[in-house]
Structures are given as C-alpha cells and as structure tokens.
Amino acid sequence: MIGEIQNFIQQLMNYSYLQNALITAVLVGLICGVIGCFIILRGMALMGDAISHAVLPGVVFSYMVGASMFIGAFITGVLTALAIGFISRNSRIKDDSAIGIMFTAMFALGIVVMTSLRGTSVDLMHYLFGNVLAVSFTNFIITLIIGGVVLISVVLFYRPLLLSTFDETMAQAAGLPVKRIHYLFMLLLSLVTVASLQTVGIILVVAMLITPGATAYLLTDRFPVMLGLSAAFGVSSAVIGLFFSVVYDVASGASIVLAASSFFVIAFFFAPKQGYFMKLLRKPAGREKAA
C-alpha cells in the first residue's frame, strides 16, 4: 500500500492534469458536503437526485451546439426545479410524484438525443458516470468559481438558511423571505450539481450530496459541526476515491462514491451516540429519553 501511495504522489507531482483533477474533486467533495447537510435536514434528497438527472439534456444540447456544458446544464436544472413546483402547486399531484415525473422525463430526453448522435457518446459518457481525470482546464476554472460562489453564499446566508430549515413558520413569522430563501437554495443546489457532473457523474451526484451529510448527521448534535464533518467526509472521499481510481485504474466517480459510502457504513454501526451497536448496548439500560 505504501508503494502505491508513493506512486500516487509521484504522479501527482509530475502531471498537472492530475493536480487539477485532485483540486476539482476536493472542491466538489467540499461543496457537496456543505449543501448536502441542508438537503438532508430539509428532506430534499429526492430533489437533489432530480436536479442532477435533469441536467442531462442541457449537457447534450450544449455539446451539440458547442457551448459550455455548464450553461446548458444549469438552465435545464433550474427549469426542472421550476416545473416541479409548477406541477405540485397547480394540480393534486404531490411533490415527490411531481419530482419523479419531471426528472425521469428530462433524463429520458437527454438519453434519446444523446443516442441520436453518432460517434460522440464517449465524451457524453463522462458526464453520465464522471471522469475527473478528463476535466478540461476551462471546466476546472469554472468549477473553482462555482465552488467559491456556493461557499460564500452559504456563509452570508447561514442564519436565514438555518432558521428556515429548522422552523419555517417561525422564520416566516419573523419576516424572513422563506420562498426566496428556498429558490436561492435550489439555485445553489443546481450550481453544485453542475460543478459535480464531471467528477462523479450525473447518476452518482446524489450520493455526494447525501452520503457525507448523512454520515456527519450520525456523529453530532450540532449543525455547525455537522457542516464541518460533512465537508471533511466529502473531501476525504474525493482524495481516497481518486487515489484508487489512479492506482487501480477504475472509474473515478464510482470509487469516490464508494469511499463516501464506506464512511457511512462505519458511522452507522460505530457512531458513539447514534451508532447501531451503541443503541443495542444501551437498550437494556432503560428508556432515559422518556423523562
């Protein structure tokens, strides 16, 4: 193992594309971890999955006209979010069904258009399954900018985001623009998704959005700590995943996700307070909760 690590570091120092890949992956792990905490507590995991799938047609159309895939992906992501809201407000269809209808439709549209193009599917496959090693320099820079925007927004709007997540009615009664906060959050979610496309791929983005945050959720009772831990799990998963991807020549996105899942499994069983085994041990001791 030590040999492999040395080998990885060696390659990292020699190849600038690998350095870019590492920085991109770390940044994606960081912003996914941060936004993911809000997603979990707002009960929006399905929405995260929806937005990530819904960007596919945008990516494909951008590819066809030769524009930056970020623009197309962002536009279709936001359109889908708006359409979901429109359907659930204007019919008896509930939110989760509206999400299911919209994102599968968008994803299917992307697949149909993609399969109609001959000879280009390899590049587009990178967006579906992620290949952080194929990130171009322009996309690297755009990812840096998106990361900066997302982190600064979360810092600036930390309190309104937290209060509207915890107690929406009180936030509203206190005069916070709850609806606008929701849209701001959807915008950040779309940005994060778009930034993560090339690293983990459309299909697996939701894992990076949920798994590090869920792992952190099992380990702490304080939201700021949850944010920090979640970001740390996101970043470590990115580094570990990239390492396995380079050394054993396997898909980068999937190995990053597997690293994140491994952290979750460990926390699920061994977390000091919320862990499965600790709960088993505590059970006979009584029900201290029911005071």
Binding site: L41, F157, M170, A174, G175, T220, F223
Partner: peptide, 23 residues
C-alpha cells in the same frame, strides 16, 4: 418541529435573536 434536528438547546434559543442581528 423535527426533534432530531442537530441543534442544542442553547442554539435553539439563540434563534430568537436572529431577526435582531443584521445578516
């Protein structure tokens, strides 16, 4: 209220001050 929310008693009470603190 979601009582599993990761927030301590003192931080929940502090939220009562949020509207008085400029963003």
């Amino acid at each position: 209220i979601d009582w599993d929310f990761p927030i301590l008693v003192e931080d929940a009470v502090l939220m009562g001050r949020y509207m008085h603190i400029p963003w």
